[in-house]
């Protein structure tokens, strides 16, 4: 079983749009939404939840007011500033270390379990889907990412799938590390902006730090072709393959508004049969699109997505 993670460093660069498109193209995959903070893939995949489980994160300290004398020793010992002057616990600052339970001379502090989120196993029109939802303001999103990935592995075993496609979170911190460790390939989605370039360099370094093969694609490459060349140049220097260049195209928004993947959208717009959906780039629809009354927009975008997917499959096989 192989695992592919799609990340970007910078948010909003097109991870979920691309991952959903890959869901349309993959033949035998489990999908996993590991952006547990602000997950969006379910808006397109519309999962039918089969199993739901509460996720217990780190525990949270709780003070028994009957026993507390207000001595403040817990507050002195807490390094996370989670105990206020009136000796109450701020659960959003508490990291569950339990130092306060040791510091308290009255045994007034105990650790209580807390539900940090939920993990789901679901069915979608593209196959099994593992996803999770972090409670607002919760700690341990990295651990929840790992829990979602464990679910995905179970689903892959259960349905004999040979690939897990992971939609990763933005950034380079705890949840991103949890999303990429142990995967076989990372695709970093970049955009040709100064921020996009800066963030891409950091995710490439992160993937290399964990010794995971990394590839890149450039989204909206035509909004700044000079910057796109800069990306290609430093990727070449770093030995990172650039698998494709996606043009700026509002097909992504139009597909999202209809809660479809770009592949589904393009296929429906030119009424392709289901068999042809997997590779619309090679389909007559696109070759003859100029004959349509309304030409199919997004052709270059969709064919480039297909090209990227073919290369990913090749690298994973």
């Amino acid at each position: 079983m192989k695992q592919l993670a799609i990340i970007s460093g910078k948010g909003g660069s097109g991870k979920t749009t691309l991952t959903a498109a890959f869901a349309s193209l993959a033949k035998n995959a489990v999908l996993a939404d590991c952006d547990v903070d602000a997950s969006d893939m379910h808006l397109i995949l519309k999962p039918e939840i089969q199993e739901e489980e509460d996720y217990l994160g780190l525990e949270v300290a709780s003070i028994d007011p009957e026993l507390c004398t207000g001595c403040g020793k817990c507050r002195e010992a807490c390094r996370f500033g989670a105990i206020s002057a009136d000796i109450t616990i701020n659960q959003y600052s508490c990291e569950g270390c339990a130092v306060c339970t040791v510091a308290c001379p009255e045994n007034a502090v105990s650790m209580k379990p807390r539900i940090s989120g939920q993990v789901f196993s679901s069915k979608t029109r593209f196959g099994p889907f593992a996803h999770a939802k972090l409670g607002i303001g919760e700690e341990a999103s990295g651990k929840l990412v790992s829990a979602a990935r464990e679910r995905a592995i179970k689903l892959a075993e259960q349905y004999t799938k040979d690939l897990i496609i992971i939609d990763g979170p933005p950034g380079i911190g705890c949840p991103v590390i949890a999303a990429i460790t142990g995967t076989d390939l990372v695709l970093a989605v970049s955009e040709p902006t100064v921020s996009g370039i800066h963030d891409l360099k950091r995710v490439i370094e992160l993937a290399k730090h964990f010794r995971i093969p990394v590839t890149v694609c450039i989204n909206k490459f035509d909004i700044n072709e000079v910057n796109s060349l800069t990306i290609e140049k430093f990727c070449a220097e770093a030995g990172v393959p650039v698998l494709g260049r996606l043009p700026y195209d509002d097909i992504t928004t139009r597909a999202m508004m209809r809660e479809e993947t770009v592949i589904e959208y393009a296929a429906r717009e030119c009424s392709l049969s289901k068999e042809n959906v997997s590779f619309p780039a090679k389909s007559p629809c696109f070759e003859n699109s100029h004959e349509h009354e309304e030409p199919v927009k997004g052709r270059d975008f969709v064919s480039e997505v297909c090209k990227i997917w073919e290369q990913l499959e090749e690298r994973l096989s």
């Binding site: 948010g11 602000a38 972090l134 303001g137 700690e139 999103s141 979170p169």
Partner: peptide
């Protein structure tokens, strides 16, 4: 602020 709803945002 960073994106998301988890601890770094808080």
């Amino acid at each position: 602020s960073p994106p998301g709803v988890a601890c770094p945002v808080i």
